[in-house]
Amino acid sequence: MTPHVILRVVSKFLIPLIAMFAFYVQFHGDYGPGGGFQAGVILAASVILYALIFGLDAAKKAIPPSWVRIGMSLGVLLYGGTGVATWFLGGEFLNYSVFTPDHPSHGQHYGILAVELGVLLAVASVMVAIFYAFGSRQPDLTDEDW
């Protein structure tokens, strides 16, 4: 897709910023609006934008489908595993206070961090996976289609 110079230059500049904004939303979720779900979608949007501009094959080289497949299960496992860990520490399922019995609120911080990371992984991977699944089933767009 050589003719789309403006698209390529602008998106090259924007994609790192979008990905960085996703992580800002993720780790600032305790203080402002946002969290794992929004961050995951924004992160997936950066990958999808890359795939739209530079082609699906290039995107699959950057983020291989096998990572995506592992990521979506790892995210759910991380969330569920946090709950199982609280069980083993003697608390209820997803009662993060048991991580640090001396400071229950610190444990809540760690727990929220872990489950939000799980949501981020699951959502970002699933969005990219659905895009890969749909995108792989059609021929490459010719210039006329743009």
């Binding site: 203080y31 759910v76 969330y79 569920g80 709950g83 809540q108 929220i112 799980g118 949501v119 699951a122």
Partner: peptide
């Protein structure tokens, strides 16, 4: 008091209603 974070939405989503968010994931 419980969680020490300013965003109540995150506290409800990830901690008080962690089951529901797990279901969503």
């Amino acid at each position: 008091d419980d969680i020490h974070i300013p965003n109540v939405v995150t506290a409800v989503l990830a901690s008080y209603r962690g089951y529901d968010t797990f279901g969503e994931a």
